[in-house]
């Protein structure tokens, strides 16, 4: 490497070394200081409390927390409890139906809306507005609509179908399905919005190329567009599953978990055992199981998301 002499001989003698002043050093800490409250929140209120709940689930706590540990007894009690098993089964039925139906309706509506529909903006607004409502409001409305003596069943009979029956709300076997109906009504528009955004993101030229290759419109959808929506399916499933596991207010407002405990869900079970029945230990154990459920869905998702992001770089 050659280095020709600069115009004037540089002086390498350093006159002064700038040490960061106190003010500078403080200024450097500002970013950390600014996020520290949130950091505290994350550490204490999210992770600390999660661990705390786990601790409670191994304790003898009833109305008040007590820190005598009894191993897995709360979990044994939990899984020995028929009501909890019903709640879990219900969550299975409700979760699967809710996710599948929402996906189906959401995708169908998105595809239909993507056909250059005239009043698209208006229709989209209509499909999505339930998402702005509280689950309590949704529950209240559907509770009334599904009530056999005043709602849809009566309406059907008044129309002349004397034997029309739609009494799922008060039937132990069917009540969980009413929760599905109301939940789908509330959330499917949201899935539609997700899919619609995904459809709009599909490269137009691919579709045109396929059409030039002679693919019919249905083929274009089933073979090209829908497969390219995989990531949307993925995040929609995550969101919906997450909503399902947390579901509490809707079932409470709609069926109150009843008749009996036939439409109970883990979230209701957890709340009632912890807060109204003074069985904090068992309640905590059920919360831990719910947390595990969310993690089981979330961790693979986050893992794949983070891996994709790393690949991007």
């Amino acid at each position: 490497m050659t280095q020709s002499p600069p115009l004037s001989e540089p002086t390498r003698a350093v006159r002064k070394v700038h040490k960061p002043s106190l003010g500078d050093r403080l200024a450097e800490q500002i970013p950390r200081l600014v996020v520290s409250p949130t950091m505290l929140i994350a550490v204490v209120f999210i992770y600390g409390f999660m661990i705390w709940t786990v601790v409670l689930s191994f304790s003898t706590s009833r109305i008040l927390p007590r820190y005598e540990f009894i191993g897995w007894q709360n979990y044994q009690r939990l899984f020995g409890n028929e009501r909890w098993m019903v709640a879990l089964t219900n969550l299975g039925i409700y979760g699967v139906l809710f996710v599948v139906i929402c996906l189906a309706i959401g995708l169908l509506l998105a595809i239909l809306l993507d056909q250059k529909i005239r009043a698209e903006g208006f229709l989209r607004t209509v499909y999505l507005y339930p998402m702005a409502l509280s689950f309590i409001v949704t529950g209240t409305v559907w509770k009334w609509l599904l009530n056999p003596s005043v709602g849809i069943q009566r309406f059907g009979r008044e129309l002349g179908f004397e034997n029309f029956r739609f009494d799922w709300l008060v039937s132990s076997d069917m009540s969980i399905y009413t929760v599905v109906i109301a939940a789908v009504w509330q959330s499917s528009g949201f899935v539609m919005a997700l899919f619609l955004a995904g459809l709009r993101g599909v490269d137009d030229s691919i579709i045109k190329a396929a059409q030039i290759d002679g693919a019919s419109r249905i083929t274009v959808y089933t073979r090209i567009i829908i497969p390219s929506l995989r990531p949307v399916f993925f995040s929609a499933i995550i969101m919906l599953a997450h909503i399902a596991i947390k579901s509490f207010d809707l079932a409470l407002a709609l069926t109150g978990g009843g008749p009996g405990y036939s439409s109970d869900l883990p979230a209701i079970f957890m709340y009632q055992f912890s807060f109204t029945r003074g069985q904090m230990g068992v309640g905590a154990a059920s919360a831990v199981i719910m947390l595990m459920g969310v993690m089981a869905i979330l961790i693979p998702y986050l893992y794949s998301e983070l891996r994709v992001k790393k690949d991007d770089r």
Partner: peptide, 15 residues
Amino acid sequence: VIIDDEDVTQSMPKD
């Protein structure tokens, strides 16, 4: 990094 014979390696950009 030395500017004007002063070692500014630790200085803030504004300085």
